[in-house]
């Protein structure tokens, strides 16, 4: 059962790759998407004060390549949005940043990804420690089937971040306040986390991530499963969080990228096509593919 589930997941992730493969084999198709030949990333991918810096990152699932030679820096305390058509590899790239791809047997990564100048794929680098520093919020809200309190307290508990119950209480409350959820749930902290609405669940997941006090938060389409009002709340939250955290957000909504991010990176079929100031990308894209995507000619 588990094997088959794994395979399904891999198949899901493969979807994008297969498309790439197919298009590559068949050559440019009628829609003209690929009339433009890729040379290298357009725009300034480097940052002065880089939190993350990735160089020549390639990712493979078994024999399929999902990411091709990506170079990208993420600045300290900036929000960077990764956009692109579905299956373009933006999620795969995101999952490389806290080594979530390690959980997939057939996934192989080469190139360098540095966090504060340290190679996170170095042998002595510990994935557990890394993930404590680089938290992640997933596409679908995934609260544990525990109470709201226990959900938020989970991270601090496993890492031993607090010395006593009072400290933990404070930490949980603080995280819930930061996630803008405290007022809504303060009366039922010990009620089940799965009993909340979708938007609340996602904010709970964000609170859960904040409670570990990470340096970077990765968000994988955090609002894609939510209604517009819940989405607005999440976006508001992201705007508040950027004071304290570096945030990498994958989104399929260009408006969202425009609203929350300072920089935007456009991925296409496993390659980073263009990166730059969010304003510039949306008003004056320099690459033809970016322009076509922004103007909605494919997506």
């Amino acid at each position: 059962m588990v094997i088959s589930m794994m395979n399904e997941r891999v198949a899901e992730l493969n979807l994008g790759i297969d498309m790439t493969q197919e298009i590559k084999q068949n050559g440019p198709d009628d829609s003209g998407i690929l009339d433009v030949t890729y040379s290298e990333t357009v725009g300034e991918y480097q940052c002065k004060d880089a939190k993350f810096s990735t160089r020549d990152v390639n990712v493979y699932y078994a024999n399929n390549q999902a990411i091709f030679d990506v170079n990208l820096d993420v600045g300290r305390n900036e929000v960077i949005a990764l956009i692109g058509p579905s299956g373009c590899g933006k999620s795969t790239f995101l999952r490389c940043l806290n080594r979530m791809n390690d959980t997939i047997d057939i996934c192989r990564i080469d190139g360098q990804i540095h966090l504060d100048g340290q190679d996170i794929y170095a042998k002595k680098q510990d994935p557990v420690l890394l993930r404590a520093r680089v938290g992640m919020v997933f596409q679908k809200p995934n609260p544990f089937p525990k109470s709201i309190y226990d959900n938020v307290a989970y991270g601090p508990r496993i890492h031993g971040l607090t010395k006593n119950k009072a400290e933990l209480d404070d930490l949980v409350e603080d995280a819930l306040i930061k996630a803008g959820l405290f007022d809504e749930v303060k009366d039922r902290l010990h009620g089940p986390g799965t009993g909340l609405s979708g938007g609340q669940q996602q904010r709970l997941c964000i609170a859960r991530t904040i409670a570990v006090q990470p340096e970077v938060i990765l968000m994988d389409e955090p609002a894609s499963a939510l209604d517009p009002i819940a989405t607005a709340k999440i976006e508001e939250l992201i705007n508040e969080l950027k004071e304290n955290y570096t945030i990498v957000i994958v989104t399929h909504s260009m408006q969202q990228a425009a609203r929350v991010s300072q920089r935007t990176a456009y991925f296409h079929m496993g390659r980073l096509i263009e990166v730059g100031d969010t304003n510039q990308i949306f008003t004056n894209p320099r690459h033809e593919l970016t322009e076509k995507y922004i103007t909605g000619r494919f997506g």
Binding site: M5, M100, V128, R131, G135, F138, Y154, I158, C205, T209
Partner: peptide, 28 residues
């Protein structure tokens, strides 16, 4: 295996080890 994969990822993403994920999230 009926426990959704997303719970595993949620726990691992917070920096839990596999055994912590299993004991504290999957088994409950």
């Amino acid at each position: 295996s009926a426990v959704p994969q997303s719970l595993r990822e949620g726990s691992l993403g917070l920096g839990a080890t596999r055994s912590e994920t299993i004991i504290k999230v999957l088994i409950p």
